[in-house]
């Protein structure tokens, strides 16, 4: 270290640094196997909430969440977002109806699961699904396909009838991949909500709104902004954070000391 750096930063003591890092999470020493700290536990227990109580969330809590969002990292600090907050029940139901109708339109074209195998309608819709998957492979992944099908059959909701919806609009001129920055600002908002005892659900199906000039106008979405997702917010029904969940382990490549290991 240069003399200047030593003067300003002090001696570089790795142990000290680790202790300082621990302080942020409220612990002083971290050994392997130590219990999850409060921050880690919050991340592990956050769930997508799809059943909300009717009660509205106080406006100051929503502002508090947005404030945590404002300090999210972004590429080149470009902060390529603009927030729209909807707390009007009727409007939320109209947004729901619009997105349900969009799902029905798509399902009408491609949802072969509602027809018996071997029928003409089945063959036609299956062919259409494959054709559309050529240009929109990510939207035609089986999971969103299933979601659209369930919504069209009234077996699943789009926004889940929350008292508040946040639409983080993306400035399409953002640096690099602005979708990443939108994901991070959303994560800040979602985690702040979780820490306040609120529940949230990301809603990718909300992007149908972006294709409607009427909805873009009603929600004050202008060029260069796009609706890419929504975040539903409210008080969760039941105790959805009682248990942590099981999820699949992932192959991880570990490169150290000139060796390569695959761990799960």
């Amino acid at each position: 270290m240069s003399e200047f750096a030593t003067e300003v930063l002090g001696e570089n003591d790795p142990e000290q640094t680790e202790k300082e890092a621990g302080k942020v999470a409220g612990v002083t020493e971290i050994e392997e196997g130590a219990p999850w700290n409060a921050v880690e536990d919050a991340f592990l227990r956050r769930r997508s909430i799809r059943k909300f109580k009717k009660k509205q969330v106080p406006a100051h809590l929503i502002r508090r969440m947005l404030e945590v969002g404002r300090f999210a990292p972004s590429q080149g600090n470009c902060q390529p977002w603009k927030m729209v907050v909807v707390r009007d029940r009727d409007m939320i139901e109209e947004m729901e109806d619009f997105c349900v109708a969009s799902c029905r339109k798509i399902a009408g074209m491609v949802d072969y699961t509602v027809y018996d195998k071997g029928t003409f309608a089945r063959r036609k819709t299956e062919m259409m699904a494959k054709l559309i998957s050529r240009s929109k492979p990510n939207s035609m992944h089986p999971v969103p396909f299933a979601a659209v099908s369930l919504v069209a059959q009234n077996r699943f909701a789009v926004f889940h009838h929350p008292p508040t919806i946040i639409l983080p609009l993306m400035d399409t001129r953002g640096i690099g991949h602005p979708q990443i920055d939108l994901g991070i600002v959303g994560t800040n908002i979602v985690m702040a909500a979780h820490s306040l005892g609120l529940g949230t659900c990301w809603v990718g199906l909300a992007s149908f709104l972006n294709e409607s000039p009427e909805w873009r106008e009603r929600l004050e979405v202008e060029e260069p902004y796009e609706i890419i997702e929504a975040i539903s917010v409210g008080y969760p029904l039941g105790k959805p954070m009682r248990n942590t969940v099981s999820r699949e382990t992932h192959e991880t490549v570990w490169l150290e000391d000139g060796k390569k290991e695959l761990i799960y």
């Binding site: 492979p137 969940v245 099981s246 999820r247 699949e248 992932h250 192959e251």
Partner: peptide, 22 residues
């Protein structure tokens, strides 16, 4: 977990687990 044949086959997955401290 779930898995699909062909284009959307899940890659590099191990069995599901609760959060592991070790």
């Amino acid at each position: 977990g779930y898995d699909f044949a062909g284009r959307y086959k899940q890659l590099g997955r191990g069995a599901p687990s609760q959060p592991r401290l070790e």
